[in-house]
Amino acid sequence: MSAPAAPARSGAPWVIVREGEKLLDPAVLLTATGVRYQDEGPYDRDEAGVLWARWGGRPTGRPRLGDAHGPRQRRALRQLLCQGCKQPADRTADGTLWLIEDDPQGGDAWPEQLLTMHPPTCQPCADIADRYCPHLGATGSALLRVRHAEPADVRGFLHQARPGAPASRTRTDFVDFRYPLVRFVVAVHLVVALEGCTIIRRTPPRTCDTNPR
């Protein structure tokens, strides 16, 4: 049975960063086992021991489209919440609803095992995104039912330094949870692998550049 339809949202998606929010840059130290904060607290790491970036500010001001707020993005993926309105994503016996960029060259197996940072969606928000999202307007979109979304990677800041010295960011990278290198990343976004995918519809690219406010 499908979850109750979420109310159609107005404005930018819930997961999008607003002008009043910012990614913080606390001091990071390198140890023999990875990176840590100088003042690390119990909520800085997840159950796998990965260190997560801190955010500050309030969700006020204009949206920074294309930039997902890390804690909200991770919560939406973990709890299968709609990225648009924060309500439970639409779910049936065939899986959870997902809206992603289309890939006409993806092959017969696409999008099975596709890695994505996009959280799921409800039907009303999927319809809004198909109509207004400039990114999906350029790529086209695919609406899916997904049976499983398994955490696979993190996207974040890879660090290096002399042990005991302040660590410095070397680059932004995607790192598999299974790799030891993940201990040296301050993670910003969660990445999941989509499994058991059924394509419901594909929407071709459009040229409309109108965005909801």
Results as ranks from 00 to 15, higher is better:
179 Y>A: 15
10 S>Q: 04
5 A>S: 11
94 D>A: 10
19 E>T: 07
144 L>N: 08
158 L>Q: 08
182 V>F: 04
43 Y>E: 14
9 R>H: 02
174 F>T: 10
31 T>S: 15
87 Q>E: 14
142 A>T: 11
122 C>V: 06
132 Y>D: 10
133 C>E: 10
80 L>G: 03
108 D>W: 07
143 L>D: 10
126 A>H: 06
16 I>D: 02
26 P>K: 14
169 R>N: 14
6 A>M: 01
181 L>Q: 09
169 R>Q: 13
89 A>K: 04
18 R>Q: 07
173 D>Q: 09
212 P>N: 10
33 T>K: 04
95 G>E: 00
211 N>Y: 00
25 D>Y: 13
14 W>R: 00
104 P>T: 12
132 Y>V: 04
26 P>E: 14
35 V>D: 03
141 S>A: 14
155 R>H: 12
166 P>W: 02
191 V>M: 11
159 H>N: 07
59 P>R: 08
108 D>K: 13
28 V>H: 01
132 Y>F: 10
99 L>C: 09
84 G>A: 09
106 G>H: 14
62 R>C: 00
121 T>P: 04
99 L>F: 06
94 D>K: 01
40 E>A: 14
190 L>F: 06
68 A>Y: 01
77 L>V: 08
108 D>Y: 00
169 R>K: 15
153 D>G: 00
65 L>T: 03
66 G>A: 11
211 N>F: 00
46 D>F: 02
140 G>Y: 09
172 T>Q: 12
77 L>F: 06
160 Q>N: 13
5 A>C: 07
142 A>R: 13
38 Q>N: 03
154 V>D: 11
43 Y>C: 06
48 A>L: 06
201 R>S: 15
90 D>E: 15
4 P>Q: 07
78 R>I: 04
197 C>E: 02
119 P>A: 00
53 A>K: 01
19 E>L: 05
102 D>G: 11
196 G>C: 06
94 D>P: 05
15 V>A: 01
83 Q>S: 09
135 H>C: 06
150 E>S: 09
80 L>A: 13
20 G>L: 02
131 R>P: 03
76 A>V: 12
99 L>A: 11
153 D>F: 14
5 A>W: 01
25 D>H: 15
102 D>L: 05
37 Y>F: 15
177 F>Y: 14
202 R>G: 04
177 F>N: 09
138 A>N: 08
65 L>C: 00
52 W>C: 05
204 P>V: 07
123 Q>L: 13
31 T>F: 05
138 A>V: 06
123 Q>C: 02
159 H>W: 05
157 F>I: 12
106 G>T: 12
186 V>R: 10
48 A>G: 05
79 Q>D: 14
170 T>L: 13
210 T>A: 04
88 P>Y: 10
138 A>T: 06
70 G>H: 03
57 G>W: 01
100 I>W: 06
143 L>F: 10
187 A>V: 05
127 D>M: 08
138 A>S: 12
150 E>C: 03
53 A>L: 08
94 D>G: 08
146 V>T: 04
93 A>H: 13
122 C>K: 03
57 G>E: 01
120 P>M: 05
104 P>W: 09
27 A>F: 02
202 R>F: 07
212 P>C: 12
15 V>F: 10
153 D>V: 10
29 L>H: 07
147 R>Q: 15
40 E>Y: 05
208 C>G: 09
159 H>K: 06
201 R>T: 15
188 V>F: 00
103 D>N: 13
111 P>I: 04
49 G>H: 12
156 G>F: 10
183 R>A: 14
